[in-house]
Design a binder for these strands. Sequence first.
DNA 1: ACCCTTGACAAAAACGATTTTATCATACAT
DNA 2: ATGTATGATAAAATCGTTTTTGTCAAGGGT
Lengths: 332, 332
Amino acid sequence: MTVRLKDVAKKAQISTSIASHILNDNYKIKLNPETRRRVKEVAKKLGYTPNAVARGLRLKKTETIGLLIPNVMTSFYNEIIRGIEMTANEENYVVLVGCSAFNTDKEKMYLASMLNRGVDGILISSFKGSNIELLKKINNEVPLVFVDSFIEGVVADYVVTDNLKGAYIGTKELIRAGATKICYVGHVGVSVLQDRFNGFVKALNDYKIEFSKDLFMLDCEEYLLGKLISQKKIDSIFISADYIMPLLRVLRKYNLAIPADIKVATFDEPFFNTETQEDIDVLKIVKEPMPYIQQPKLEMGKKACEILIEKIKTGIYKHTISKILMEPKLKI
Amino acid sequence: MTVRLKDVAKKAQISTSIASHILNDNYKIKLNPETRRRVKEVAKKLGYTPNAVARGLRLKKTETIGLLIPNVMTSFYNEIIRGIEMTANEENYVVLVGCSAFNTDKEKMYLASMLNRGVDGILISSFKGSNIELLKKINNEVPLVFVDSFIEGVVADYVVTDNLKGAYIGTKELIRAGATKICYVGHVGVSVLQDRFNGFVKALNDYKIEFSKDLFMLDCEEYLLGKLISQKKIDSIFISADYIMPLLRVLRKYNLAIPADIKVATFDEPFFNTETQEDIDVLKIVKEPMPYIQQPKLEMGKKACEILIEKIKTGIYKHTISKILMEPKLKI
DNA sequence: ACCCTTGACAAAAACGATTTTATCATACAT
DNA sequence: ATGTATGATAAAATCGTTTTTGTCAAGGGT
């Protein structure tokens, strides 16, 4: 049903090869201007658009980029996706999304699938290092840009928030507001999270506050926090936004108000999901909005996509590693 | 660099045609079992996977489905996307996403782009009727399933929440709780929203409450609401979750508490985005969680994707219109 | 008068699969 | 002995492009 180049050529009484040259505005080959006009006119009239699959086969490029992320249901990745879709669209690329669900096998499967579907490049947010060999191999076949993640040993481009700086200025803000005993809540298992922790420690050092291992926990551990609070071992908390609701519940249990009794700053905008009445009550302890570190998610997506497309277009993408640090912002 | 069928064939000392038959498990053609074994072994050893682009060209199917939605940044579409990605992945399909941003031209562009990239089917959430002719045409070329939207005149499948029922049971809940003067806040411009309004009116009728045009507004209009409230013309409100924050601000201005002074039920889970301290304060008027109508978003995505893939596989998809109503739930 | 360029176009190859059509022994029936 | 199945495989066509190579007449230079 759809109109092929052959149809245009036949109607314009010309060979398909010439038609192709004309429709691709190839002026290197000399042609009668009238012929050019005629072919273009016919193509327009028939509403011809080149079949991207055939084109992809011949050209070995599909104007498609693969996007592989852990999940699509958090606002964090959504904004990144949006940024990616925006610039991809501007540059006439289309994006194939896959959701790895933090599952190494699924990630592997998607990578293979994208590759043999001929994507021109891949954007990925990957944490576990399990597919590192595969990623290295892929990195030699198509450009690869990592978003909000860092895989030691893969020589590619990385676009990440400056997590160290973010945690640094967040912690500094707590100190500025008078904090002296700061508790850190958050994982350190992967590079970006380790950076955050390092930023936290750096701020402590710069402001001559001694770091104590006792004031550091991976998860929001109610019992530990309870002890620290009741023994007045801490006056403030720097915490990942993911844990904000659990934290508030703990604080409420101890009848503490923010910021009078305890100061809290979060990495990422705190997200209050209020499922129950208790959740709504819990919010009442927040007397002032908490300062938080905002990641430029949209910009991160945009930037990563720009870099990828740049690499696709130039074809230069091997043997260089670059880490683009996006500027976090302190929001009060 | 990647290994082609030709490479496998050469290594197994066989023609590509036979290799293809073997790797596709075509038993209609008689072959020496030993040859089959050998070819499969070689293919496995070389790590051969068929080039999906070439395959797509020859077979005219790409195992790709197009997904076109207005935006990717609201939790509503995110869950739908997730559902779609899940079932697509299970069925070995891959998803090409596009974001129309409520823009007719962008929608048109994406539809064309997806089509000529050879997607096997399209899932779309479309509101404005502007691309209706294009959609009709597409509907004859590949299966088309609408998600959470309805376009009069396009003979395709629709997967939507039973909006009428949702609004009906939501309103009924308000009435059950003693409401007699209910205000409706929400647009009616598109089919799904009109259904909601109809459900609201139906509930009023069934419970012998007269509908008054004065208690109906498209947006959350502060002035109007203020008047209705201060004149005690209403005791409850049925409202789209999108407007919950503006509504709370108005209610707070009048110093009203939920549900003591005014009952509120929402369509979709109320989403409290608390940007400022005022926002947090505003939540304090909510003394009890509000009842709300929950749409089965994930299931909607799954269902739509299942239907689409079913149609792709059977090839039967023309000249029937079906509207699948997903069951909304009342949450208290 | 002969060779060379060039303008204008056509034919064919290539991309990597799948599928239809051929080849060519051997075996079997008549 | 001749024609026809059939088993096992190869060759060629096809999908719709792009690109390389070919054709062929007109014009220019010596």
